[in-house]
Write a protein that binds this DNA or RNA. Structure first.
Lengths: 239, 239
DNA sequence: CGACGTTTTGATCGGCTTCAAGCTTTGTGG
DNA sequence: CCACAAAGCTTGAAGCCGATCAAAACGTCG
């Protein structure tokens, strides 16, 4: 199933038919990864590139003191580690958040993809949106107080899921524990908990058994200053 | 002078001679930007891509409350906004830190560059190192306490300058004000000041009239857990 | 010299962390 | 299918890191 990947590459416009054909054909063998298992670790330099086709994963960095920062979440269609096929080694690790299905693209297949100008360009764009996403996170963690910070992350999570057809207008799955949320937002677990309580009390979110919904989504967007422009989705979810 | 840019693109290996020729030829007209002026603002979508050839610039994001987060620094050779030639609009702004010389690459020149597979690939790699840099910042701001956070940034600044021949082994220019440092690290100006004092008192840095030096650089690296791997420099400054 | 931007210092305040313990849900093997 | 363990969530109390406010010293440039 190279489907989510194809859709990802076509976010910014359709690819030539032969290119699409190529992409469909590469989805050779797919691997199942159990929740919480590492997909690839810092320092490694494997021969293939991983592609998430089902489930969720996240990038993280381990720091000297033993603390951990999650720096991105990967959803179906996302490329895990194109880096590795070019750069010398992984500078961070990737773990499965839920049970995950991952396609392993051998190096020569990557090369084949990059030889197609349209695909190569699409990849460049995808990488640039990842970069844009990282910048927004930086602003989020650097400037916003705890409540807005978490609210902002929740809005992003929901919108990203919505854009790949995995969420309704006001509800989505949410497989993160509060511990993940803490490592994502640079806050302590205890404080994350209190913030969530507060959001709940105010009727802004309903979060239970890994299901998240937003009774007043626009209100929440307002509160945390969420603007979707940095996600560069130009379909239904605009600028 | 397309020189710093050429060097940048060749970080990961030399380009074919015709490609190098092309790059040397594109440096059409260069523009001078005064310190503190904006080079490009959020929301804009200009026809050309900016390239820093002299001086320093920085990317920043303005948040609702009026606060500002600096999300990256640009040094000679860095590409400001490839984004724009693909994505719909800038999702952040770029300002000159010092007086800056900027080459404006018109869109068709960019296209010409991307048509060369080797250049296109080099660009992809450069963008990926930018992404890696962003991840490290995220971990830095999210997890490290003020002192380590600032120390880490100083180490990075120095190493980056060193890698482009603008610093000696223990000294470099440092045109940022404490205000910039605050907006970079997500701390208040006052606290940045106190941290700098503390680093000075301990003999770890000497910072005066925009000159920064490191009497005990390895000690400082240790203290903040600085590891250069995320910069993906494979020359003299290893892994 | 005067003015403005930058750095410095002191005092106070508060958001978030840490520690600690109890509770609830999920998962697993007998 | 129950029992128990493990993981996740919740709550309270105390303390600290860094924010904020305010004002003074410094430096740099017209």
């Amino acid at each position: 199933m190279g489907d989510p990947f194809l859709r990802k590459l076509e976010t910014f416009g359709p690819l030539p038919e032969p290119d699409r054909e190529l992409i469909r054909s590469i989805s050779t063998h797919s691997e199942h990864i159990k929740a919480a298992a590492d997909i690839i670790c810092e320092g490694e330099k494997p021969g293939e590139v991983n592609l998430v086709t089902e489930g969720f994963a996240y990038r993280y960095k381990l720091l000297a003191g033993g603390s951990r920062q999650i720096v991105a979440y990967l959803m179906p269609g996302d490329i895990c580690d194109l880096h590795v096929s070019f750069l010398k080694a992984m500078d961070h690790s990737i773990a499965a958040l839920t049970d995950t299905q991952v396609v392993k693209l051998p190096r020569d297949q990557i090369e084949a993809l990059l030889d197609r100008p349209a695909i190569s360009r699409a990849l460049l764009m995808v990488i640039m949106t990842y970069e844009a996403n990282g910048r927004e996170w930086l602003a989020n963690i650097g400037q916003r107080p705890a409540e807005k910070r978490i609210a902002h992350f929740l809005c992003e999570w929901h919108l990203r899921l919505r854009s790949i057809g995995l969420a309704t207008d006001d509800t989505c799955e949410f497989p993160l524990t509060q511990h993940h949320l803490a490592e994502t937002s640079g806050l302590s677990v205890v404080h994350v908990n209190r913030v969530l309580q507060s959001l709940r009390r105010r009727g802004l979110i309903v979060l239970k058994s890994r299901q998240l919904s937003f009774p007043k989504l626009d209100r929440l967007w307002d509160i945390c200053g969420f603007r979707s422009n940095y996600l560069h989705m130009y379909g239904r979810w605009g600028s």
